[in-house]
Nucleic acid binder design. Structure first.
Length: 719
DNA sequence: CCCTGCTAGTTTTTT
DNA sequence: ACTAGCAGGG
């Protein structure tokens, strides 16, 4: 192996022999290179590839790592265990389903399935009126699982809490857990939690894996949650060859349970840890690194690192203020067109934003200008209704107890099985202590069903039985094709498409799903074994987005900053740098939350290789209402000189409070009053609504434009 | 049981 | 501003 491509610190990490190793790899310092070289080196030294476990967070990262190992150690990469945490856990649970007390053919429920089930659980507990809070409870339950609190432990914890909502959460958690288990399902948190209990309660299994994995490597260690920490620690306990790579400055997933302490305290947790710090950046120009560095320096709790580069020169980071999000978008598009003229391919541009909603104005501007773009994330392929419908059929075939999926498609296409019939089915099931799926086949015994409904249920049952019987002889694609055909889902969409454009696009998506199954199948066949429907589902239920295979077309990229982590682009636009948007929710956010926003900003900036633009607007429409914004404190922290907008002289910390105190203006403002807005000019108040913080006024301005303004956020002046 | 008009939530980030 | 989910009538 050629080590000459590594700098001395990288080489130190690659060549580190036995014992724990912490690699603090700042942005763009060759983190993936270190981890893949290290694996290749281990293989070269005689470690069997099959006894190396490398864990990543995203499927994309896992795929990339596998490819890079393959190129360094040809023919041996496939034996290395390269997985996401969740993928690894799913594999273990299938392997040890009995010991883990899960159904052999368990279904992995994503967060939308989870939310549905939680709403059901809430109804059952009598919290119907709080249905809107399902996502809140979903997140409470998920965080509890990340912290390894099962329903029982959470109830104990809740009983000592003074917060009454904890007790409600505990009740919902317990009912939810019963439901998901009866449906033979696991959610993302369960994957981790159940593996932890498996390893804890079965010493023989634990010792087997502790023995088995000679080396454990974890990428993006700063994003691990407590459960992942325990899994890692347990697996590496015997050989103590644990190598973690990460950057505390890029920890941006605390809302998902990530605990930054895992990386900050690694040296304390694992005795005699080797520490390597990578600070030489190979990605960005000096001005970009310096600006990013000045910003991240405002964070208190971090392992101090300073990015540096040997590269000389580089264009200054540019800040641009725009009137509103429309102007922001057209300015960015204009810059892209200029860049294209001077020879940059479209693939070298990326637009980043804090929230998905911001993508819309960019999409509109790009479409208007005829610039091709790729939107990453937003409406994920596998989360689309029609895709979930199609997959629900497949899930039921494999896991007949899967109630969620059954209820999802039982009347799609319409089969005359409505709410009332389903209620009766559920009641019938409940009386027998079963879930709806389990008593579904006994439909003929259920009272009060209409004959047509009874007939539909019987037909559906027959359809499932027939396909289940044939399933062992079918490949994933054959199975999917038959499912979509025989369930009449496809022909139904075809019919609908004639009158409904949305159905047409859903049909196109389902057809795309079919071709993507085919693709998977062919890729797998190349490796020698056929792909079963079960294996296909396993792969994609942990996949949030289908990797875009058609990268051939030259296009620019749009995505949230979170999704941008780990990527790089020559020219980056970091947009919407406004107080309240980025950092988001300013005012009432804690110091920790603000520091996470700052890390996110740092992540976004350090994606740029050649040129970085920061934009902010003075007014932005949110929820259909115009808010007036001040530039993000991050703009000031970057201390950029030159082309900075005039706002630079403002005292940001002092003005991060609302521009106009609502109380004063809210009470003084009369209908008919003449007001002045810095952007829209002079106008007249037509209506007032709301009170206190939500007080709004409808103002017609002299340019003819009428806008409802939230007084708290609008710098209106009475004249 | 299906359709239509209303209401309420949505926009923080995702394995 | 937009939409998904729901209540109430056909």
């Amino acid at each position: 192996m050629d080590l000459s491509l590594l700098n001395s610190e990288q080489a130190k990490a690659v060549l580190h022999k036995e014992g724990p190793l912490l690699v603090l790899a700042a942005a763009g310092t060759g983190k993936t290179r270190v981890i893949t070289y290290r694996i290749a080196r281990l293989i070269e030294e005689g470690v069997p590839p099959g006894k190396i476990l490398a864990v990543t967070f995203t499927n994309k990262a896992a795929e990339e790592m596998r490819q890079r190992i393959e190129s360094l150690a040809p023919g041996r990469a496939s034996a290395v265990w390269v997985h996401t945490f969740h993928g690894f856990c799913a594999k273990l649970l299938r392997q040890h389903y009995e010991a883990a007390k899960v159904s052999r053919y368990f279904t992995i429920y994503d967060q939308s399935d989870q939310k549905r089930l939680i709403s059901d659980a809430m109804k059952e507990c009598g919290f119907e009126r709080e249905a809107a809070k399902a996502s809140m409870y979903a997140s409470i339950i998920s965080r509890a699982k990340d912290d390894l609190l099962d329903a029982g432990s959470y109830a104990i914890y809740a009983s000592t809490s003074i917060d009454p909502s904890r007790k409600i959460a505990a009740q919902i958690y317990s009912v939810y857990q019963k439901k998901i288990e009866s449906a033979g399902g696991v959610d993302f948190g369960d994957l981790l939690l159940k593996v932890c209990s498996l390893l804890k309660e079965h010493p023989s299994i634990r010792e087997y894996y502790q023995d088995y994995f000679l080396h454990v490597l974890v990428d993006e260690y700063q994003d691990t949650n407590h459960a992942q920490y325990i899994i890692t620690k347990t697996l590496a306990a015997k050989h103590k060859n644990l190598c973690v790579v990460g950057d505390d400055d890029q920890s941006v997933y605390s809302w998902r349970g990530a605990d930054i302490r895992n990386i900050l305290e690694f040296e304390r947790d694992f005795k005699e840890t080797g520490v390597v710090t990578l600070e030489q950046n190979y990605r960005s120009t000096k001005p970009i690194l310096e600006a990013a560095g000045r910003i991240i320096n405002n964070n208190g709790r971090r392992k101090s690192k300073t990015l540096w580069t040997q590269r000389q020169g580089g264009a200054a980071v540019r800040v641009q203020e725009l009137i509103d999000e429309r102007e922001e978008a057209s300015w960015v598009v204009q810059k892209i067109e200029e860049g294209k003229k001077s020879g940059h391919p479209l693939s070298s541009f990326a637009i980043f934003y804090r929230t998905n909603a911001q993508s819309r104005s960019f999409e509109e501007a790009l479409r208007r200008a005829g610039v091709p773009y790729r939107l990453i994330g937003a409406m994920r392929f596998y989360q689309r209704q029609e895709i979930k419908d199609a997959l629900a059929y497949a899930r039921i075939l494999l896991n007949p107890r899967d109630e969620i999926s059954l209820l999802r498609v039982v009347n799609v296409p319409p089969r005359g099985i409505g709410k009332t019939s389903l209620e009766r089915l559920k009641a019938f099931a409940n009386a027998r202590g079963l879930n709806a799926s389990e008593s579904f086949r006994d439909a003929d015994k259920i009272d009060n069903l209409t004959p047509s409904c009874r007939k539909s249920l019987a037909e559906l049952n027959h359809f499932f039985d027939k396909l289940r019987a044939d399933l062992p002889n079918l490949s994933a694609w054959q199975a999917m094709a038959r499912i979509l055909d025989e369930s009449r889902y496809l022909s139904w969409l075809e019919e609908e498409s004639e009158t409904d454009i949305e159905a047409a696009s859903r049909l196109a998506n389902v057809q795309e799903l079919l071709s993507s199954v085919k693709e998977y199948e062919e890729r797998r066949q190349a490796r020698g074994s056929p792909l079963s429907l079960g294996e296909y589902l396993e792969e994609i239920s942990l996949q949030t987005d289908r990797e875009t295979t058609d990268t051939a077309a030259d296009s620019i990229t749009l995505m949230t900053i979170h999704l941008a982590k780990g990527l790089e682009y020559p020219i980056v636009f970091l947009t919407g740098l406004e107080e309240g948007l980025f950092p988001i929710g300013s005012g009432n956010s804690s110091k920790e939350e603000l520091e996470e926003e700052r890390r996110l900003c740092y992540v976004g900036m350090t994606r740029a290789k050649e040129m970085l633009y920061l934009t902010h607007t003075s007014a932005r429409r949110v929820f259909g209402q115009t808010y007036s914004n001040i530039p993000s404190r991050f703009v000031m922290e970057a201390q950029l000189s030159g082309e900075l907008s005039t706002e630079r002289t403002r005292d940001y910390t002092a003005t991060s409070a609302p521009v106009v105190p609502a109380q004063r203006l809210g009470t003084n403002l009369r209908i008919g009053a003449r007001v002045r807005h810095p952007l829209f000019g002079v106008g007249e108040v037509l209506e007032k609504s709301g009170s206190g913080e939500t007080a709004k006024a409808l103002v017609r301005f002299e340019n003819g434009r009428s806008t409802k303004l939230v007084l708290r956020y609008t710098p209106l002046e009475i004249i």
